[in-house]
Design a protein around this nucleic acid. Structure first.
Length: 297
DNA sequence: ACTCAGGTACTGC
DNA sequence: GCAGTACCTGAG
């Protein structure tokens, strides 16, 4: 059975333009924005609020109904449907993931069930690269704090919902600001990496657009030219910034998952086209579901 | 004081 | 190749 995209209807939400999506399946907005793939969204009173694609958006979900405030029909069709991954058939993806990982054991079935509703967002190239350079050897609250400072200081201003907001800064703006400005943002040793990446993008040594047409392996090698970009950051950039879903970033959590559930090792080349989505299920399963249970002991 | 955090570069075998 | 180590910073 073919996937049926949720239908969007125009409405309003507290006087703001708003899109309502009914019949949303395999989508849990709160989980999507709380699984460490994006750093510019916050949840307050059940509303997910943040900036992406140079726009602010507020999101709330009640069952299979999704409300997007700050977007009209055209913006939904052109931007948010794709950004949120609502154009993808996750039922089919989940089946593929369970098949590929299922040759080892049934852990993936539990993870997909427990962490259902996860989506891989389609973030912008530069924002993903820059954010994941900052993420290295760092924790999520501090990553968010640094990214917010970076945006507030160097991102283009705009007004939304009556408040000043900031786009993610361009590499040009970061280059022009200089490394001392980045140091003042408490990036620590990552300042020089962010600066190096910005410099390479501005002078053309790195062509972010060209990566779209590269294979996953080519893209990985290409991104790793940047100082401060190793395999993990490159894989995250390709997965979250280029939607190359075969990327399987191995961080400390996934390392633990592999040791715990796949002690005899796995064949990374046989994980299929959606390995990165499986990675998200396993990450979420171990960190937020099993993890919390363990810490409550 | 110490460890840890969604890693990476550098060093020494 | 592969293990060991330093690295900014802030929270626990």
């Amino acid at each position: 059975m073919a996937y049926i995209k949720p239908t969007a209807e125009y409405s309003d939400w507290d006087g703001e333009r708003c899109i309502i999506l009914r019949g949303v399946s395999d989508f849990d907005a709160y989980r999507v924005f709380d699984c460490g793939q994006s750093f510019r969204f916050n949840v307050e009173n059940g509303v997910i609020d943040g900036v992406a694609m140079d726009r602010r958006i507020k999101i709330k979900q009640e069952g299979d109904t999704l409300y997007l405030a700050g977007a009209d029909k055209r913006e939904y069709d052109e931007i948010w449907e794709s950004y949120l991954g609502l154009d993808e058939d996750y039922e089919a993806i989940n089946a593929d993931v369970c098949e590929k990982f299922g040759v080892y054991n049934g852990v993936i079935n539990d993870a997909v069930k427990a962490a259902s509703g996860i989506r891989i967002l389609r973030q912008e190239h530069w924002e993903a690269l820059c954010s994941f350079i900052i993420s290295q050897n760092n924790n999520i609250p501090r990553i968010k704090k640094i990214v917010e400072t970076l945006c507030r200081e160097l991102g283009e201003k705009f007004i939304s919902f009556g408040e000043e907001c900031h786009a993610f800064p361009t590499p040009e703006a970061i280059l022009a600001a200089g490394i001392e400005t980045l140091n003042a943002m408490k990036m620590g040793f990552r300042s020089k990496y962010v600066f190096d990446a910005a410099a390479r993008v501005v002078d053309g040594r790195i062509d972010l657009k060209a990566i779209e047409n590269m294979s996953f392996y080519e893209g990985e090698e290409y991104l790793m030219q940047i100082c401060g970009v190793g395999k993990k950051v490159a894989d995250c950039t390709l997965l979250y910034g280029y939607h190359k879903t075969e990327a399987f970033p191995v961080d400390v959590w996934i390392k633990r998952v592999l040791e715990k559930y796949y002690p005899d090792g796995i064949d990374f080349d046989g994980l299929g086209k959606f390995a990165g989505i499986a990675q998200q299920y396993l990450f979420c399963y171990e960190r937020y579901i099993n993890g919390e249970r363990e810490t409550n002991k």
